[in-house]
């Protein structure tokens, strides 16, 4: 199909077909199946048995599920509140020209070498209340008995901290990339106006980074909804159920309690919440459109 007269050739729908089909089979169909399975009772063996809204009625009255939703929301909020300022500041700082920053940056980014599972295992060892370094460091931090993972607040903060440790380097890198693209002219102009360092940061850097902040925040929110490895290895949802966030609860119910139907209802809730977040993000941040309007940045 050569395009002689009618302008540039336009791709037909066939171009999108393989990708769309693949996505349909391995992502959309499973999503629909989650909906169907949530209406069944299925123990993982044999065929699912249709039970109507039974799982949903149970879900609505399940205090553990309510707790999981609160925990997931709290984890998302805490993740954003901890990771954004630190990676923003570190990223802007690392974008600077000094030579020693390059060396320091190399150390900063070492957590990126490790998978979530590896990071969680290392921290579990570090936080071991009898044999880990926490027994030496704990007293300085006001934790004489080093009981971090065994206390509700401690375990939750440990999950927040460990994921921050793991992901801040990535977001630092993103901010570093963003900060490097801020035209120097803007800083020059601000300096002529007599703006100090703080005001330059506030009036030049931050506004210029607003798209980067959006993207990084999107990744953080989406990431926090899917934290699983850290909880599985570090706290196993404990103590009790005090770090059982929604994805982990789904795993426990489905693959330890074998109530796959009920687990699907939990998963469906996660899907609905995540779709809601997706739609909000796409609509209110202009996330989708943003990338096409890069001109002039």
């Amino acid at each position: 199909m050569s395009a002689a007269a009618g302008g540039p050739a336009r791709p037909g729908a066939a171009w999108a077909l393989p990708g769309a089909l693949f996505f349909l089979v391995f992502a959309v169909v499973p999503l629909l199946l989650v909906g169907y399975l949530s209406l069944t009772s299925w123990e993982g063996l044999g065929a699912p048995r249709f039970t109507g809204a039974q799982n949903w009625v149970r879900l609505a009255g399940d205090p553990v599920m309510r707790q999981a939703v609160v925990l997931s929301a709290a984890l998302t909020a805490a993740t954003w509140l901890v990771q954004t300022p630190i990676s923003l500041l570190l990223g802007v700082w690392a974008a600077g020209p000094q030579r020693n920053r390059a060396v320091l940056s190399a150390v900063f980014f070492t957590p990126l070498l490790f998978s979530s599972a590896a990071v969680a295992i290392v921290w579990k060892t570090l936080l071991d209340p009898n044999f880990g370094p926490i027994t030496r460091v704990g007293p300085w931090l006001g934790l004489p008995d080093a009981n971090v993972l065994g206390s509700s607040a401690g375990a939750f903060l440990a999950v927040v901290f460990v994921s921050a440790w793991q992901f801040i380097p990535l977001h630092t890198l993103i901010y570093q990339g963003g900060a490097r693209q801020i035209p120097a002219v803007l800083y020059g102009a601000a300096e002529i106006d007599g703006a100090g360092r703080f005001r330059r940061f506030w009036h030049v850097t931050l506004p210029q980074l607003r798209h980067t902040i959006t993207t990084s925040s999107v990744l953080m929110v989406v990431g926090a909804l899917t934290y699983f490895e850290t909880v599985l290895i570090l706290t196993q949802g404990g103590p009790g159920t005090d770090t059982s966030i929604v994805p982990y609860l789904m795993y426990r119910v489905g693959f330890a309690g074998y109530e796959m139907g009920y687990a699907s209802a939990i998963a469906a809730t996660l899907v609905v919440a995540a779709t809601g977040v997706s739609l909000l993000l796409v609509r209110f941040t202009g996330f989708a459109a943003m990338r096409s309007t890069r001109e002039g940045m």
């Binding site: 992502a27 899907v271 997706s278 993000l281 796409v282």
Partner: peptide, 15 residues
């Protein structure tokens, strides 16, 4: 495709 943007793979592990 964007509909799936924030959907965690964890949610569909059973199906």
């Amino acid at each position: 495709f964007l509909l799936g943007l924030a959907i965690p793979a964890q949610a569909v592990v059973i199906p």
